[in-house]
Design a binder for these strands. Structure first.
Lengths: 202, 202
DNA sequence: GGACGGTAACTTACCCTAGGGTCACTTTAC
DNA sequence: GTAAAGTGACCCTAGGGTAAGTTACCGTCC
């Protein structure tokens, strides 16, 4: 570290502890949803108590937002980079999947935070999640447009539907992956390549 | 009715009220998840109060189970009928979709009850939902097996993955449909047929 | 080098509300 | 007048959130 140690006293520096809590929170929120997750359980996972969690993040919403921003930021960044590189329309899905699998190999629940149906319908969380979804959807719509127009389909409502189904496909692939911790990002990508090649000739 | 009117007094016969409550419960549970849904809100939707709901269903779990059994029963029955009819492997997905859209045109949230991540991980609900999922997965695996083997893919793990992705596709189609109440079952089926034809040549 | 503040890290013990669940009671159609 | 349909008012717990104090590491002053 180039920075002189900020200070520090007991236990572990705040920054490090916050990172642990965000990881634990992401897993709990991803597994049980915002409504189902318990703050004391998240603290317990890390080996601290609830008040520390509140001191650092202020509220359940604050913690969720921290988890959401980390997940959403990494996700949109990874997808943007991949999409910017360009390529054949029917190669993009696999490239995006590969990027997602690589980015989230050790953080598989993160994806779910953007699509958690149990967050309160109004408020900061819903707004932030909707914003990340909107950005991802824009990429999905772009990819779907390229793919469908290359096949002679131009109905914009069809395109929206395909874009949304695509995000659902990612969702279920990640759920499947969560249940198979031994499958790493490379194996997952290879599997998807094999299946898409066989099923669609892509 | 062949039965003489059971009796009946004030308001509405129990059977009818229960049906209303199951419909309202399905929508609330589907929208907010088990953890996020509120019993008083479900009662309010129907225009009665919470104690009546408890008198009829005993508990939140009891109501959820009633909703789940109705949804799961109709779903497995519809899919079983469609699958039993047989056909070309690459025609089955569309046939199954058509059956699901027709069955749940006026009950679009029902599907979500089988895959609600906020139900407690152990207990009657989780067991019942897992059982319905298992039955549906069996159909999905059957369809995926036929489809993949017809393409020269035989890896059983690939088949499982495809089967799970398929359920995810249904999930996201239904989510998309929920947001577009004006699209009826026929239009939805036609859209899926057009897209699958264009994208995959099916 | 050891006493001593100072401060961040952390905890115990508590409050408070939302919401699941219940009891005793009232209404109304037969 | 009986019994099902329905309600107002309540209890209780889980869990979000907080106040006040305690612990341990650091620098520093003699």
């Amino acid at each position: 570290m180039t920075e002189s140690r900020p200070v520090g006293t007991k236990g572990m520096p705040r920054e490090e502890r916050e990172a642990q809590l965000v990881v634990a929170g992401t897993e709990e929120f991803g597994r049980s949803g915002y409504a189902g997750a318990s703050m004391v359980e998240i603290a317990r996972r890390v080996g601290v108590t609830k008040p520390l969690l509140y001191q650092y993040f202020g509220s359940k919403d604050g913690l969720y937002l921290a988890c959401l921003h980390r997940a959403g930021g990494r996700l949109t960044e990874g997808v943007a980079t991949t999409m910017a590189a360009g390529g054949e329309p029917d190669q993009m899905p696999l490239k995006v999947l590969a990027a997602i699998f690589t980015t989230f190999d050790h953080d598989r629940y993160a994806w779910r935070l953007l699509r958690d149906p149990t967050v309160p319908a109004t408020g900061d969380i819903a707004a932030a999640a909707a914003d990340y979804r909107r950005r991802l959807d824009a990429f999905a719509v772009l990819g779907a447009t390229q793919l469908l127009t290359s096949r002679g389909l131009a109905d914009p409502v069809d395109i929206e539907a395909v874009a949304q189904v695509w995000t659902g496909v990612v969702d279920s692939l990640i759920s499947w992956w969560i249940d198979r911790p031994d499958e790493d990002a490379g194996a997952m990508t290879a599997r998807c390549a094999r299946i898409m090649g066989g099923l669609f000739g892509w």
